[in-house]
Design a protein around this nucleic acid. Structure first.
Length: 587
RNA sequence: GGUUCCGUAGCUCAGCUGGAUAGAGCAACGGCCUUCUAAGCCGUAGGUCCCAGGUUCGAGUCCUGGCGGAAUCACCA
C-alpha cells in the first residue's frame, strides 16, 4: 500500500463526511511536507474551496480535526496558509518500514519485450552505446521489480551498406590484418577500417567536386560508394567470398563486443541478427505490394506513401531490390511479436531515430498489424561532448573500453591514496576497484533524466565525491562495517522505541518511500528516479550517522539505530541493483 | 524551410499529476578526524528558472508568440 493513496483516501472521507462532497482520489494532492515545516504529509486545501467555500484555514482545520478522530495513525496537524500539514505516529512509520508483509502484490503484470544495445558491427562501442546499454539493463531490472515479465533482446545490425564499407576497406587496405597481428580488439580493427573508408570516400568526393560535380552527385558516384553498393548486392545474393569475409569480420567484432558487455555486466535473453530478419521484412513488403498497400516506383523501388499522414514517401526496398534499415525492422518486429506475443515492445533507441519509429508504427499499422500500437520507442537523449556530437566516422568518440578502464584505474588510484584497502589481497583489491570504477560510470550516466541530452567532458574525469556512485557505495560500505562491528543480530521484534529524534525520523520516512519510488520509476521508465532516491538516502544516512552514536548508544537506541542502518544498507543495495551497480563490502 | 525535443547557479544536474521561501553536487571560501570508514559532515557565497504575453487563488511546471541550441525530414543505420 502506498501511503499517499491511503492519506488521500482518508482526506476524502473527511470531505465526504464534513462537506458531503466526493472528490476523485487523484484530485486530493498529497505531498511530502517541506523540510521547513512541521509534519509528514501536506494536503493543499485550495482545490476544495470552489466546492466548499469558506476560508482555507478553517477548512484545513476541520479536515485536520476529523482525521485525528478518524484514525489513530494521525498524531497531530497544523495549518499554514491553507496547507494542512499532517503528522503520522512513529509507530505507523516503523510499521511501514519494518513490516515485510506490507509488500505490495503487483496485479497488472505485463509481458514486456525490451530491445536495447543494438550495435552495428562496423565499429566498437562508445559512450553513446554505454548509455543505451545501461538504460536498457536498468529499465529491465526496474520493470521486473514492478512485477512484469521481461525479456531482454538485442538486435545486432550485422548487415547493410555500412558493414560493406568496413569490409571494402579491409579488402583494399588491410588484406592481411587480423586482431592478433595488429594487437587490438576485433571491433577496434573493424572500426578503423570504417574510419579509413570514410576518409578515402571523402577524398574521392572532393576530387569529383573539383571536376565540377555537385556535392550530391559526388556522394552518389564516387567509386568507393559504388563498390560498397555492389558488395551489398553480392552479399544479398550470397556471394561466397563476400559472405566469408563478412563472417570473419563479424566474428572479430562479436569477440570484441562480448568483452565489453561482460565488463559492463550486460546480458540478453535473445539476440536477433538483422541478417536473419531482413528477408522476412522483404517478404512482408512484397506482400504489401501485392495487396496494393505499398507502391512501386518506376525505378523499381518500393515505397509507402505516407503523405496522408503528413509525412513523406518512405523507401522500403531500394531500386536494386536490396533492403534498408526499415525493411529489417519490420521483419524483426513481426517475428518478435509472433514469438513472444508481448503486451508491450520497448525499443531503447536514441532520440535521433524518433522519425524512424514514427514511420515504423505507421507502416506496420498500414500493413494491418494492430499490435503496432504496442511498440514503445524509449527515446533517450544523446551523449554530447563539450564541442558537440560524437561521430564515429570522424573518430571523435569516447571509446567504451577506454573509458571503463580509465574509471577503474582512477578508482585504484583513489583507493590506494586513501589507503582504505590495506590488508586486502590483490584480487580482492582489483575486484573493489572494478566495482567502484563501474559504479562511478554507471551512476554518472543513469542519474540524468534519460529523455535529456547530456554532456560529457572527457577533460574533467568523472567525480568520486558528492552526488556520485562511489558516494553511495561508500555509505553502504560504512553501514556494512558498522553492522559487522555490532556483533549482534538485530531483529525487528525488538522495536519498542516510540521516540525518534529528527535524524532517525527523517531516515525512516525516506526508507518508507522505496516501494513508491520503484513504482514511479517503472511508470515513468526512468532509472534516474531510482538514482536520485539512492543519493538522497545515502546523504540522509550520512547525516544521521554523523549526528548519532550507534554502537555506544543506550540499548534501545542502539538496537533501533542498528535496525535503521541495516534497512538502509539493504535498500541502498537494492536501489543500486536496479541500476545495475554493485556495492562493495568495504572501500 | 517543415516536424520534434531542449533552455533552471560559473559547470553538471534535481524539481512528482500546477502549490509554501526554486534544490543538490562540482568548482571557490571557512570550519570538523584522541570517538562506529573524512570517498564523510557542517557553514559562506552563488538565480531575471532564455524573453514577452496569457490561463488562475497560485506558473520553473500549462497555452501562444519570439530568441537560442539540438535532432530529424536518406535508395545511412
Amino acid at each position: 500500500m502506498f501511503i499517499e493513496n491511503f492519506i488521500s483516501g482518508e482526506v476524502n472521507k473527511a470531505l465526504n463526511s464534513i462537506f458531503n462532497i466526493e472528490l476523485n482520489e487523484t484530485k486530493v494532492s498529497v505531498e511530502y511536507t517541506k523540510k521547513d515545516f512541521e509534519g509528514d504529509f501536506t494536503v493543499n486545501v485550495f482545490p476544495f474551496l470552489k466546492i466548499t467555500g469558506g476560508k482555507p484555514a478553517e477548512i484545513a482545520d476541520k479536515i485536520g480535526q476529523f482525521l485525528l478522530k478518524l484514525n489513530p495513525v494521525f498524531s497531530k496537524y497544523n495549518v499554514v496558509n491553507g496547507f494542512l500539514n499532517i503528522s503520522l505516529s512513529n509507530n505507523f512509520w516503523i510499521e511501514t518500514v519494518f513490516n515485510e508483509n506490507e509488500k505490495e502484490l503487483k496485479p497488472n503484470t505485463q509481458n514486456i519485450v525490451i530491445e536495447f544495445s543494438s550495435p552495428n558491427t562496423n565499429k566498437p562501442l562508445h559512450l553513446g552505446h554505454i548509455r543505451n546499454n545501461l538504460l536498457g539493463d536498468s529499465l529491465s531490472r526496474i520493470l521486473l521489480a514492478n512485477g512484469n515479465k521481461v525479456t531482454r533482446v538485442n538486435l545486432v545490425n550485422d548487415r547493410g551498406i555500412h558493414i560493406c564499407k568496413s569490409m571494402l576497406a579491409a579488402k583494399k587496405w588491410g588484406k592481411n590484418f587480423t586482431p592478433q597481428n595488429q594487437g587490438i580488439k576485433g571491433d577496434k580493427l573493424v572500426g578503423n577500417f570504417y574510419v579509413q573508408f570514410d576518409k578515402e570516400y571523402k577524398k574521392q568526393q572532393e576530387e569529383l567536386i573539383n571536376e565540377g560535380k555537385t556535392k550530391e552527385e559526388a556522394e552518389k558516384n564516387a567509386n568507393l560508394i559504388l563498390e560498397a553498393a555492389e558488395m551489398l548486392r553480392k552479399w544479398e545474393s550470397n556471394d561466397k567470398d563476400i559472405i566469408e569475409l563478412w563472417k570473419k569480420m563479424n566474428d572479430w567484432v562479436y569477440q570484441g563486443f562480448e568483452k565489453t558487455y561482460k565488463t559492463l555486466g550486460i546480458n540478453f535473453d535473445k539476440i536477433y541478427y538483422e541478417s536473419n530478419t531482413y528477408k522476412l521484412g522483404k517478404d512482408i513488403i512484397l506482400k504489401g505490394l501485392e495487396n496494393k498497400i505499398l507502391t512501386k516506383r518506376a525505378d523499381g523501388s518500393v515505397i509507402a506513401d505516407l503523405t496522408g499522414e503528413n509525412l513523406d514517401e518512405k523507401v522500403l526496398l531500394r531500386a536494386d531490390g536490396t533492403s534498408v534499415y526499415m525493411t529489417q525492422d519490420i521483419g524483426t518486429a513481426e517475428s518478435r511479436y509472433n514469438e513472444f506475443r508481448p503486451d508491450k515492445m520497448i525499443y531503447v533507441v536514441g532520440n535521433e531515430q524518433n522519425y524512424h519509429f514514427n514511420v515504423l508504427k505507421i507502416v506496420l499499422k498500414k500493413l494491418g498489424y494492430n499490435w503496432a500500437e504496442n511498440i514503445n520507442h524509449f527515446s533517450y537523449g544523446m551523449v554530447e561532448l563539450p564541442d558537440g556530437k560524437m561521430k564515429s566516422r570522424e573518430g571523435t568518440v569516447v571509446d567504451a573500453d577506454d573509458l571503463i578502464e580509465e574509471m577503474i584505474s582512477t578508482a585504484k588510484k583513489m583507493s590506494d591514496e586513501l589507503g582504505k584497502l590495506d590488508g586486502f589481497s590483490k584480487d580482492e583489491k582489483n575486484e573493489i576497484y572494478r566495482i567502484i570504477g563501474l559504479g562511478a560510470l554507471k551512476y554518472y550516466i543513469l542519474k540524468v533524466d534519460p529523455k535529456k541530452n547530456m554532456v560529457f567532458n572527457p577533460a574533467e574525469s568523472i567525480d568520486f565525491n558528492g552526488n556520485t556512485g562511489p558516494f553511495i557505495q561508500y555509505t553502504y560500505a560504512r553501514i556494512n562495517s558498522l553492522l559487522s562491528k555490532s556483533e549482534q543480530t538485530v531483529n525487528n521484534t525488538e522495536i519498542a522505541n516510540n521516540e525518534m529524534n529528527e535524524g532517525e525520523k527523517e531516515l525512516t520516512k525516506l526508507l518508507s518511500r522505496f516501494q513508491t519510488v520503484i513504482a514511479d520509476a517503472g511508470n515513468k521508465l526512468s532509472p534516474a528516479i531510482i538514482a536520485n532516491y539512492a543519493y538522497d538516502l545515502a546523504k540522509t544516512y550520512n547525516q544521521f550517522y554523523h549526528e548519532n552514536q550507534v554502537l555506544k548508544a543506550e540499548e534501545n537506541e542502539r538496537n533501533f539505530r542498528l535496525l535503521l542502518s541495516k534497512k538502509t544498507g539493504e535498500i541502498i543495495k537494492e536501489s543500486m541493483f536496479l541500476l545495475g551497480i554493485e556495492v562493495p563490502s568495504r572501500m
